[in-house]
């Protein structure tokens, strides 16, 4: 099967004591195996709820979520679905269970009942994959935010998932931590072939994605390649997203009459675009 995750006509209602909130309504989404998908949306756009629906942590009020063709509603597949689709959260502190790094990473495989030797290998591989092997005997409390988040990712990777969903994994980190996490995620996708769904409100984290989905108010408002999405700056601003300064600059230059497109984000590419535009005028 080509799609690892299929969200079919999902409605999700949040039942609070005094009010009923409809977070998602008749929502559909397919995630291709091995792909790198970024979901952009501001706080409260329903993207965190979506993340929790993808591995069965939340069950749809209506509709179905399929992982490898298995419905997440099916109770007896509960554990297997969570193994296949790992979920990483925003706050690294609240995801780590044990006070020694390697013990924490072992938590998932231990729950799966693997044999001690197998677990040891899975833990070592996972720690190496996130570049934290040297810290295996350390305690999470002494690590930086970015390092802790990488341990949280290792804890998921150790279960050998097919897909990893990250819900704003960089929101609480400093620039250095953010860069560490993004490069780790890219590496897992390109080297290990793990399907990645990255949920964020930082547009620049979507640059290298295969596909970018923009969510607003529980709906998909755009779904395309990064280049395509980034050309449509007014939409991104309209849904309250963070627009990187490079894009902002290109957009304003274009508005000011310069013959330029806004589909790049990196500093080098932006500079090249401006350079070309200026030279074009001169010729």
């Amino acid at each position: 099967m080509n799609n690892i995750i299929e969200v079919k006509n999902v409605t999700f209602e949040y039942d609070d004591a005094d009010r009923k909130d409809i977070i998602l309504k008749d929502f559909c989404l397919d995630i291709k195996r091995g792909s790198f998908t970024v979901i952009l949306g501001h706080n409260g756009s329903g993207k965190s709820t979506l993340a929790k629906l993808l591995n069965g942590l939340y069950k749809p009020t209506e509709g179905n979520v399929f992982v490898d063709g298995i419905s997440t509603v099916d109770e007896k597949n509960e554990i297997e679905i969570k193994r296949r689709v790992g979920l990483v959260f925003q706050n690294p502190d609240n995801q780590l269970v044990a006070s020694i790094v390697e013990d924490d990473v072992a938590f998932g495989p231990e729950n799966l009942g693997h044999s001690p030797d197998v677990i040891r290998n899975e833990v070592d591989d996972a720690l190496k994959a996130v570049d934290m092997y040297d810290f295996r005997k350390s305690t999470p409390h002494r690590l930086s935010g970015g390092q802790k988040q990488r341990i949280a990712i290792a804890g998921i990777i150790a279960m050998k998932p097919d897909c990893i969903v990250l819900d704003e994994p960089t929101a609480m980190l400093d620039p250095k931590g953010r860069a560490e996490i993004i490069s780790t995620i890219k590496k897992l996708n390109s080297e290990k072939g793990i399907t990645v769904v990255l949920i964020t409100h930082f547009m620049e984290e979507a640059v290298d994605a295969d596909r970018v989905i923009v969510m607003d108010d529980g709906k998909i408002v755009a779904d395309s390649t990064p280049k395509d999405i980034f050309s449509n700056i007014s939409l991104l601003k309209q849904v309250g997203l963070d627009v990187p300064q490079t894009t902002e600059l290109l957009y304003r230059l274009k508005q000011g009459g310069m013959n330029i497109t806004t589909d790049v984000i990196s500093i080098e590419e932006s500079a090249q675009k401006i350079y070309d535009a200026i030279h074009l005028e001169e010729i």
Binding site: P244, Q245, T246, L249, I267, E268, S270, A271, Q272, I274, Y275
Partner: peptide, 12 residues
């Protein structure tokens, strides 16, 4: 970032 873009333009 905008200053970094300017520095890159200067190099060009």
């Amino acid at each position: 970032i905008v200053t970094q873009v300017m520095l890159s333009l200067k190099q060009k």
